[in-house]
Amino acid sequence: MLSKFFRPLYPLTRSLLVPNIRVKRLVHQSASRYGQLIPASQYDAPLPKRLHLTYALKNYWELIPLALITLTSLTLMTLSLIWASFHKVDVVYTAHSRANISRTMDLRNPSVHKLVIINQRYEPWPEMQDVLDKMRMAEKRALVRLQTCAHA
């Protein structure tokens, strides 16, 4: 595979090193000589036609249901991942985010964030909600105190 990338570079490197007009004629000769020194690898061969998707679906029609089922499942998986990233409360993208479930969820009236629910209820937890309310009020008081002290 590397030989595919190195072959076009030999004339370029030769002409950059010795920018002479007469050398250009030698560059073409030397490029073919150097190209033969680098052995071809197994990756230089093109893919066979039967491995191309359009050719395989046209000539081997038995693959069409397999391709449809695979594409459908990949589409459903992608859509479910997108849905979960926007609607699930336990998905956190940043470690420094303070908007996690314990701060954003209403514990007096809990909501359900699942696709399928079978005999499950979230019980209200008013004591914890009272603690969260006290924490929010303390944060607001501290913020107001900082603002008043900064102007004095």
Score class of each variant (00 low, 15 high):
residue 2 L to H: 08
residue 3 S to G: 15
residue 6 F to K: 12
residue 9 L to Q: 11
residue 9 L to S: 05
residue 13 T to Y: 08
residue 13 T to E: 08
residue 13 T to F: 12
residue 14 R to M: 13
residue 14 R to Q: 03
residue 14 R to K: 02
residue 15 S to R: 10
residue 18 V to A: 08
residue 19 P to M: 02
residue 25 R to D: 08
residue 26 L to P: 00
residue 27 V to A: 08
residue 27 V to W: 00
residue 28 H to S: 10
residue 28 H to K: 14
residue 28 H to V: 10
residue 31 A to N: 09
residue 32 S to E: 11
residue 33 R to H: 09
residue 34 Y to E: 14
residue 36 Q to H: 02
residue 37 L to F: 07
residue 42 Q to H: 00
residue 43 Y to D: 02
residue 45 A to F: 03
residue 45 A to E: 00
residue 54 T to S: 09
residue 55 Y to D: 15
residue 55 Y to P: 01
residue 56 A to H: 09
residue 56 A to D: 12
residue 57 L to F: 13
residue 57 L to T: 15
residue 59 N to T: 15
residue 59 N to M: 11
residue 60 Y to V: 15
residue 65 P to I: 10
residue 66 L to I: 13
residue 69 I to C: 04
residue 69 I to E: 09
residue 69 I to S: 05
residue 70 T to R: 12
residue 71 L to H: 02
residue 71 L to S: 14
residue 72 T to D: 01
residue 74 L to Y: 04
residue 74 L to N: 07
residue 74 L to H: 04
residue 75 T to G: 01
residue 77 M to Y: 08
residue 79 L to Q: 05
residue 79 L to R: 01
residue 80 S to P: 00
residue 80 S to L: 07
residue 81 L to R: 04
residue 81 L to T: 04
residue 82 I to E: 02
residue 84 A to K: 07
residue 86 F to W: 05
residue 87 H to V: 03
residue 88 K to M: 10
residue 88 K to I: 02
residue 89 V to Q: 09
residue 90 D to H: 13
residue 91 V to W: 13
residue 94 T to S: 14
residue 96 H to N: 12
residue 97 S to K: 06
residue 98 R to C: 03
residue 99 A to Y: 05
residue 102 S to Q: 12
residue 103 R to G: 00
residue 106 D to H: 02
residue 107 L to A: 03
residue 109 N to K: 08
residue 111 S to A: 14
residue 113 H to V: 04
residue 114 K to Q: 15
residue 114 K to I: 03
residue 120 Q to E: 15
residue 120 Q to R: 10
residue 121 R to W: 03
residue 123 E to L: 13
residue 126 P to D: 03
residue 128 M to W: 06
residue 129 Q to H: 07
residue 133 D to V: 06
residue 134 K to Y: 00
residue 134 K to A: 10
residue 137 M to P: 00
residue 138 A to L: 09
residue 141 R to V: 05
residue 142 A to Q: 06
residue 144 V to L: 15
residue 146 L to I: 01
residue 146 L to E: 13
residue 147 Q to M: 11
residue 147 Q to P: 00
residue 148 T to Y: 02
residue 148 T to W: 05
residue 149 C to W: 04
residue 149 C to N: 10
residue 151 H to V: 15
